[in-house]
Each structure stands twice: as structure tokens, then as C-alpha cells.
């Protein structure tokens, strides 16, 4: 039961992260929302691993952690660059790459 509810919780967190990602215009908040989504995914893995009594869920959590660390370090670097170039963190302002 617990694992099922944990999965629902994971989905809730993921959905909240998605809402945040779409609603906030500040890049920093968008990154935070992505962290929330990643956490939701981690929770799903942990819950599944615990349900099947397998270590694989936690292994996946470790990989997600690594991914998050790498992603955040590069993304924050980009945020700094963007801020110094555009003087704003408004994601809608960086639309130079439109097709």
C-alpha cells in the first residue's frame, strides 16, 4: 500500500514541478521546478525498488543524482551567462533561436 501511495506522491511532485516549469518565467525558478520533477522521478524509482525488494531502484536514484548534479552545474553556468548578456532572467526574452 505504502509503495503505491508513494508512487502517487511521486506523480504529484512531478506534476507540481511541471506546473512550475510552465508557469514561472524566471529561469532560476524553472531550474528549481526541474529539480522537483527529478525528485519525483527518484521517489518513483525508490518506491518501485522497495516494492520488489531490489537494489536497482536505489541504483537508479544514484544515477539521477549524478545527472542532477551535472545538469545543475552546467545550467547555473548558463544562467549566469544569460543574465550577464541579457540583463534579465526572463525565459521569454531569450527567443533568439526561433526557427
Amino acid at each position: 500500500m505504502l509503495a503505491t501511495h508513494a508512487l502517487v506522491l511521486a506523480m504529484l511532485l512531478f506534476g507540481l514541478g511541471l506546473i512550475g516549469l510552465l508557469v514561472r518565467r524566471n529561469v532560476l525558478y524553472m531550474l528549481l521546478s526541474i529539480e522537483v520533477m527529478l525528485n519525483g522521478a527518484s521517489l518513483a524509482f525508490i518506491a518501485a525498488g522497495s516494492r520488489w525488494a531490489q537494489p536497482d531502484g536505489q541504483v537508479m536514484f544514484l544515477f539521477i543524482l549524478t545527472l542532477a548534479a551535472a545538469e545543475v552545474s552546467v545550467a547555473l553556468g548558463i544562467v549566469l551567462q544569460v543574465y550577464y548578456r541579457f540583463r534579465t532572467l526572463d525565459a521569454d526574452a531569450f527567443s533568439l533561436m526561433k526557427g
Binding site: L62, F63, T66, L67, A69, A70, E71, S73, V74, L76, G77, I78, L80, Q81
Partner: peptide, 16 residues
């Protein structure tokens, strides 16, 4: 994962 972290390191260094 180690191959991912290394570009992360280099990328962060380069960006900053």
C-alpha cells in the same frame, strides 16, 4: 555517469 560528470565539470568551468 563518470563520463557525464566530466563534461559537467568542464561545462561549468567554461560557462563560469
Amino acid at each position: 555517469a563518470s563520463m557525464l560528470l566530466l563534461p559537467g565539470l568542464i561545462g561549468a568551468y567554461h560557462m563560469g
